[in-house]
Computed example of a mutant assay.
Amino acid sequence: MQYASNGQKLYVKHCQNCHGAQGEGLGKLYPPLTDTLFLKEHRSQLACIIRNGMRGEIKVHGISYNQQMPAIPELTNIDIAFILTYITTYFGNSKTHFKQEEIAEFLDNCKK
């Protein structure tokens, strides 16, 4: 799957430092990306988190994290689709992928 292989390269460059090679996170600092329920319930917000960063508390696998995530504004919509497809298929066991059009719609609806 091209989306996932391209996503892996982008993940290594932009995400792996904090979230780990297997999406395991880093202690109580950075959340894991392996909570399938969280990924599913927040699908429409994930692109906004990547593009705009995130502040405030987040709960993943029942554990609270409150470390700021920096924005990555230079990523294109297709880059974000690649990354999210990689994360959700390899760490979240999802069978679906993110489409560029879906990412554009999600980003249009981001809370500023």
Rank of each mutant, 00 (worst) to 15 (best):
Q45T: 05
H61E: 15
I72M: 12
G92S: 06
I72G: 01
A21N: 08
G92E: 07
N6F: 09
P32I: 05
R51E: 03
R55H: 07
H14A: 15
F91H: 09
Y65E: 01
P73T: 04
L39E: 01
T85F: 09
L29K: 05
H42G: 14
T36L: 15
T96Q: 07
H42I: 08
S94P: 06
T76A: 08
A104H: 07
P32M: 11
L39I: 02
Y65M: 09
N77F: 06
A21Y: 08
I72Q: 02
V12Q: 14
N17T: 15
Q67E: 09
P31E: 09
L46H: 00
N93Y: 13
N17C: 10
K28L: 14
I78K: 12
V60F: 00
Q22W: 13
Q67M: 13
I87A: 12
P73D: 03
V60N: 00
L75C: 03
K9H: 08
G53H: 01
Q16T: 06
K9M: 15
A4S: 10
G25N: 01
Q22N: 13
R51L: 13
H97P: 07
Y11V: 04
K59V: 07
L10C: 13
V60W: 00
Q22A: 10
Q2L: 07
Y30D: 03
S5Y: 10
Q16P: 04
E57K: 15
F98C: 04
T89E: 11
Y30P: 02
I80F: 05
N66C: 09
T96A: 12
T96S: 08
P70N: 06
T85M: 11
Q16G: 11
T96L: 08
F98N: 01
V12S: 15
F38N: 07
A71E: 03
